[in-house]
Design a protein around this nucleic acid. Structure first.
Lengths: 338, 338
DNA sequence: CATGGGAATGTTACCGCGATCATAAGCGCA
DNA sequence: TGCGCTTATGATCGCGGTAACATTCCCATG
């Protein structure tokens, strides 16, 4: 309770309760046989002193660290917090604890963050994406701990992977759009050469269009700023440049929502004159005047599966090494369901 | 590079480079005098092996942990990620590293998370809010490390605090609304008895209204679900129940945005017939058809100041112990600027 | 009544690193 | 040539715990 400089150790509790440090350690960890009487003594002494065990020392001695490194590009769009929430939910039933590192979509920063996290010798790593620097890959390999790469399954994992195929997501959306009869299709996205998943969606998208002899008639990319506002601006720009566009595919729901709001204001018939689709299935969409067509990225599910793999592996059990989730398209009100 | 079971130690690098462990340690930490030749040898050996230092051991030996515990209620609204980003920005120029724990607005979980984090013996704690369980307070006190309580300054901090006065924020908004001539005011918020900051804003708000003999004519609370959709629903409900309402104060921007969209759809004159205001100043607002009146909560700034205090204290310098930021009201298009 | 065996507790030896002090090597200068 | 001083490197110890083994004590059993 009182302010102390030298932080408390097992020895303090041991002295206060009249038993050996080892016994205190056993009580505090609920391990081994301790008589109820001693347990009681120790617990009350520990509480009295306000003792908080030192995990640093514990981890070093036991060679076990109950941490799981979670490395993601960003916290500021809704997608990763949701993945995190899935992870936390699963890990809460275990001894494990997630620790988050953010890379800002920069490979070098990812490398740095990974290095930093591995130096704490975590029990596992969950990391977004399949694209990493060579050094990062080497570290992951050398770490000797379970590694789950998440979000994306278009590529070769270091160890395990859980996600959806973004290429396929792009293809399916393209197919749905074509099937609905749209022909003049524009694409609006982020100016992020390093967002491999957005890139793969775009690739899958154009691939299917190409097969039908359709080409994206216009495209525009943004970076920074309010995604909602950017969606609005970019949509306006595209319409001015290419007035005959009849469909806009947005690389995420937020800019899609911006575009939708803009078109509705302009009194444009959606999805009659122009159809729209986004990507992610964010909750926010539910509050819009009209439901934006989108594709659920299974974010929570990905977090859950990834955490389950880590948890199982940590307990020695083997668990499937690749989980491919199937995103489902939701037509909403902005894409004619042919 | 190759998969190893026993993880590498200083000794491995020491053997590979033919110098003592101590010298390797010095090289890897850039500490003390080491000849360029040795340094080179050691670095290449370390790289070759793919050695990653063990911070657990390092921390134990040096009694220094470069971690700052950041304890926040939630990641899923835009407010805390923004605070985090301020913190990261500042800490990036130091040796310190933030580690985040999430409490879900539950005091017991906060206590658990705090205990867990303190057991890693971090160099400082940044924790949201001034309300904590007695045990949490005791732990913070006993920890002997700098503690900054953030977001709120209406109360007594354990150590330092950085934030805004939510009570005052509520008062100022009330004053602005009254000044603009609105009389029939409704309040829409979250059903969160544990969100003390929302509560304080509401208290300040009603306090000022009361002084002018005005009472909140209707109120409604939600929990869970899409905030945007809830704002929409609640607004509709209130209007049906109290058709003569001329102003709605929302406890956050997201539900405010939902309300705004709803009213615009209904063709209601905003801010003529009904005025609106939210709270937080989230970026999202910029993409709305009309600018919602709001109040900036200085989130990024709070993160920055808090991190600066921790950084200064860690270096032994003393830094101000209380920083009260002044939120500024932004009238937008939904509150007549009297 | 001696004995084996389990329950409760203690002792010892690290875990991997860094602080500290000791030592060795190089060098200028009288 | 030898002295003292700096620079480079090594040896030792301990951080605060835990694993593994050792010890004590007690009781049921033949």
């Amino acid at each position: 309770m009182t302010q102390q400089n030298r932080s408390l150790t097992l020895r303090d509790v041991s002295e206060a309760s009249g038993v050996s440090e080892m016994t205190v350690s056993r009580v505090l960890r609920n391990r081994g046989d301790v008589s109820p009487a001693t347990r009681e003594k120790v617990l009350s002494a520990a509480k009295e002193l306000g003792y908080v065990p030192n995990k640093i020392a514990g981890a070093l001695a036991s060679q076990r660290v109950n941490l799981v490194a979670v490395i993601i590009p960003s916290l500021s769009n809704m997608v990763f917090p949701e993945v995190l929430s899935g992870i936390s939910q699963v890990l809460e039933d275990t001894e494990l604890q997630p620790v988050v590192g953010v890379t800002d979509y920069l490979p070098e920063k990812e490398e740095k963050v990974l290095y930093e996290m591995l130096s704490w010798r975590p029990s596992g790593v969950i990391i977004a994406g399949l694209e990493h620097t060579e050094a990062s890959r080497a570290m992951l390999n050398a770490s000797g701990i379970p590694v789950v790469e998440i979000m994306d399954t278009d590529g070769e994992p270091v160890d395990a992977m859980v996600g959806i195929s973004h290429r396929r997501a792009g293809r399916e959306m393209a197919a749905a759009i074509l099937k609905a009869g749209y022909k003049k299709i524009a694409f609006l996205g982020t100016k992020m050469p390093l967002d491999h998943r957005a890139r793969k969606r775009f690739e899958g998208f154009t691939e299917v269009l190409a097969k039908s002899g359709v080409e994206v008639v216009d495209r525009e990319f943004y970076s920074g700023g309010s995604a909602l506002a950017k969606g609005r601006e970019m949509t306006q720009a595209v319409l001015e440049r290419s007035p005959d566009v009849d469909f806009i595919y947005y690389s995420n729901d937020m800019i899609g929502a911006g575009g939708l709001l803009y078109l509705l204001e302009k009194g444009i018939d959606v999805p009659g004159q122009i159809g729209l689709a986004g990507f992610n299935g964010v909750e926010l969409l539910q509050g819009l005047p009209r439901q934006l067509a989108t594709m659920d990225a299974c974010r929570r599910e990905i977090g859950i599966k990834a955490a389950e793999i880590i948890a199982a592996r940590t307990e020695g059990k083997d668990k499937d090494t690749t989980v491919t989730l199937a995103p489902t398209i939701s037509f909403g009100d902005t894409l004619r369901d042919a």
